[in-house]
């Protein structure tokens, strides 16, 4: 059953246009001119209960605008949207009580309060039953290993620690739907892995529907089974991650390591993509040559030490996709 239904969502922002230079500034005082920016030009999709959807697109594509409308912060210029049967901006208070939101670039915890006090405050804000709150809190603290952090004021936490606390904070009232807007931004590698693991666990074990926006394609690869790609305010793709990858980039890859320096290989349907010392990355078209045949051909003619079939990096797939659609940042 669809938990989120979005139909023909539009949003135009009106921004003041200032002509450059001092004269422009003076003229702007007398007569202000406005320009309309279309952030969303008719966006439609549906998300089912328990899904984990990656919402991706270049900067300025309309990702955050969509999330803000879905979470009730922003009122759209047109179109319809329902989350669990509620219109976010019309039934704001009831709606926000049922969702959890984390903006990676902002904090929802009180900067000067110890983490645990911030959690207690959220308990009262969301009117959570105290016994139920204690259970949820203890589960989340265990799951995210927050025990040692609870007594520290939020401002003393590292970004990675803070982000774990933020996600826990967003889950204290047990929302069935979680919006994560760039939850791994600025995190180091272990912290990113920890956040991904948490999000995956929440989705798998607790059945929380997750809508994830990110620029980190590793996040998408690790978590999302479905991607929605948005560019210049319209949906460019909405399909399972594997289908998306295959559709954009049909070629497959092998990485081969040789005993000596990597040789030049001339097999029809095979192209060299990268070379580094004794290692070579080759792209091949599976319609022209099958993987076993290719491996056999290389092994027959060259001193092969190791060979691996790999998938193209998701970054590359996305970059290729944006290029195809002219969807790069305007």
């Amino acid at each position: 059953m669809a938990q989120v239904v979005v139909e023909g969502l539009r949003k135009t922002y009106r921004v003041a246009v200032r002509e450059p230079g001092a004269w422009g500034a003076i003229r702007g005082l007398a007569r202000r001119r406005w320009r309309e920016i279309e952030a969303l030009a008719g966006v439609s999709f549906a998300i089912g209960t328990g899904e984990l959807v990656g919402f991706i697109g270049p900067n300025g594509a309309g990702k955050s605008t969509t999330i803000k409308i879905l979470s009730g912060i922003l009122r759209p210029s047109g179109g319809a949207c329902e989350v669990d049967g509620l219109v976010p901006w019309r039934d704001r208070i009831r709606h926000v009580a049922r969702i959890g939101v984390v903006f990676g670039q902002r904090t929802q915890l009180w900067w000067d309060l110890p983490v645990i006090d911030g959690f207690d405050l959220l308990r009262d804000i969301y009117r959570v039953d105290p016994a139920r709150y204690r259970r949820t809190r203890d589960e989340l603290v265990g799951l995210m290993r927050l025990g040692p952090l609870l007594d520290q004021p939020v401002r003393q936490l590292s970004l990675g620690q803070r982000m774990r606390c933020e996600i826990a904070a967003a889950m204290l009232h047990e929302p069935r739907l979680l919006f994560l807007d760039e939850p791994t931004i600025g995190l180091d590698a272990p912290a990113k892995l920890a956040v991904r693991e948490l999000v995956g666990t929440l989705n798998r074990e607790r059945g929380v529907t997750v809508v994830l926006t990110t620029h980190d394609m590793q996040d998408i690869e690790a978590l999302a089974r479905r991607v929605i790609v948005i560019g210049k305010g319209v949906i460019l793709a909405d399909e399972p991650l594997d289908a998306f990858r295959a559709g954009v980039l049909a070629e497959r890859r092998v990485v081969a390591d040789f005993a000596g320096e990597a040789p030049r290989i001339a097999i029809p349907g095979v192209e060299e993509r990268a070379r580094e010392g004794r290692s070579l990355e080759l792209a091949f078209d599976p319609a022209r040559i099958a993987a076993p045949a290719l491996i056999a051909a290389i092994a027959a003619d060259y001193p092969l030490e190791d060979i691996r079939v790999v998938q193209p990096q998701i970054e590359e797939v996305i970059a290729r996709f944006y290029d195809l659609h002219g969807a790069g940042e305007a």
Binding site: I93, I99, F103, R106, T107, Q108, I125, R127
Partner: peptide
Amino acid sequence: RTGAVAYERLRPVD
């Protein structure tokens, strides 16, 4: 100033 006022709208309060 910081835009954190957005979070204010995410709270189920008047």
